[in-house]
Simulated assay, not measured.
Amino acid sequence: MRTGRMTFHDSVLALLVAVGSVPLFLLQSAARAEWTRAPDAFGVALVLLMSAPVAVRRSWPLAGLCASLVPQTLLAALGYGFGPAAPAGLVLLYSVAAHRGLAAALCALTLSLAVYTVGVSAGPVTPARWSDHLVVIVVLVALWGAGRSLRLRRAYLAELKDRAARLERAHAADTRAARAEERSRIARELHDVVAHHVSVMTVQAAAARKVLASDPELAREALSAIENTGRVAMAEMRDLVGVLRAGTRAELGPQPGLRDLPALVEQMREAGLDTGLSVHGEAGRPLPAGVDLAAYRLVQEGLTNSLRHAGAGARAEVTVRHAPGELDVRVEDDGLGAAAGARPPGHGLVGIRERVALYGGIIDVGPKSGGGFEVRARFPLKDER
């Protein structure tokens, strides 16, 4: 569609150039009748013929210029007084400079100047002064320069548009990456908050169902623990959703950390998992908040997996070791290590790996050689003095 419009416009321009060139040709011949050849039908035909290539000035500008220069040269050589400074030649020279590369544009300018020189030299003697020739040369060079300027401006604008498009694509890619990262973070936080409490509630509900008839008091304690665990889960979920919801101001409490491990261990004991906790060494300074939270979530996920998969009668042990420049956290049990390792990794362990990697740590997850399952992570700590 665009090519058709361009062709139509160029054809109209060629018609206008032809209509304008014929009167100009007749007036010039009449004004210089004493030293130019009288206009005739052949001269008019040459004028019309040199104007026809303007119709392809954007499709084949250099070829059109060469085709137009042939009748123009004949007009000059036969003494009609028309040369490369005719309207068609000027339009085509400008078109080559505006729509083709530098090499083609220089070729067109050189060809126009050469044809003008040959036409003047081969034609009849004229009283033209050197200033007249200088004016023609200046006009040719000026139009050529105007065409080159337009082409360079178009190239500059195209580069700006392309750069803006690249920046927009890069911004869109960054936005998608940020959204994906945020979705991953939200999913990890939701899993860490919900999975542990739901697992504890599931185990306690199963225990309450088994002893409901034989030991109602024990079942009542299990149901009370389920109620408390559910309330804690709801409170944490409410805080998390309040943070994620735009425009909502949530009441934020401190994030859990290693200081909360005793309460976590006690909760696991109440859920039926025999759990021990040992802490070696002392932190020289408060742990970074992110490392503290990641270590707590690792212990929480490790104990939750032990509660789910270790089996009845298994014991879990949590070991926290503070060393110079390093924090070592380990969760191990003596349950069904090989069977647990055969299970596909869940979202919890994937999230823990991401947390540990975020702080430059190293994590090992898998069954132990002597039986049982182990989750261990080592976090590097910067020694800031």
Score class of each variant (00 low, 15 high):
residue 330 R to W: 07
residue 5 R to M: 04
residue 145 G to P: 08
residue 302 G to P: 04
residue 150 L to V: 10
residue 101 G to T: 05
residue 322 H to T: 01
residue 176 R to L: 14
residue 131 S to A: 12
residue 251 E to K: 12
residue 57 R to E: 06
residue 89 G to I: 02
residue 275 T to F: 13
residue 158 A to Q: 15
residue 18 A to W: 01
residue 281 G to R: 10
residue 297 R to P: 01
residue 170 A to E: 12
residue 246 A to H: 14
residue 33 A to G: 08
residue 98 A to I: 05
residue 146 A to S: 09
residue 80 Y to L: 13
residue 344 P to Q: 05
residue 273 L to G: 00
residue 244 L to W: 14
residue 343 R to E: 14
residue 338 A to N: 12
residue 357 A to L: 13
residue 20 G to C: 12
residue 38 A to R: 09
residue 221 E to N: 13
residue 322 H to Y: 07
residue 366 G to R: 05
residue 198 V to N: 08
residue 167 L to G: 12
residue 323 A to Q: 14
residue 355 R to H: 02
residue 276 G to V: 04
residue 300 Q to M: 01
residue 164 A to Y: 07
residue 234 M to F: 12
residue 212 L to N: 08
residue 316 A to T: 03
residue 308 R to K: 15
residue 385 R to Y: 12
residue 279 V to N: 01
residue 115 V to W: 00
residue 189 E to T: 02
residue 137 I to M: 10
residue 11 S to E: 08
residue 160 L to C: 03
residue 4 G to K: 03
residue 312 A to D: 15
residue 93 L to I: 02
residue 324 P to N: 06
residue 146 A to V: 09
residue 23 P to Q: 02
residue 201 M to D: 04
residue 337 G to A: 03
residue 283 A to K: 10
residue 383 D to G: 14
residue 42 F to Q: 14
residue 101 G to Y: 08
residue 268 M to E: 00
residue 260 D to M: 13
residue 219 A to I: 05
residue 13 L to A: 10
residue 228 N to R: 13
residue 139 V to Q: 06
residue 186 I to A: 02
residue 303 L to M: 04
residue 116 Y to P: 05
residue 122 A to P: 07
residue 174 D to C: 03
residue 380 P to D: 11
residue 371 G to F: 14
residue 26 L to N: 01
residue 264 L to P: 00
residue 118 V to W: 11
residue 25 F to Q: 00
residue 109 L to Q: 00
residue 207 A to W: 06
residue 355 R to A: 10
residue 211 V to Y: 11
residue 133 H to K: 05
residue 383 D to L: 11
residue 248 T to A: 14
residue 123 G to W: 05
residue 149 S to A: 12
residue 274 D to R: 08
residue 33 A to K: 14
residue 191 H to K: 02
residue 295 A to W: 05
residue 53 P to A: 11
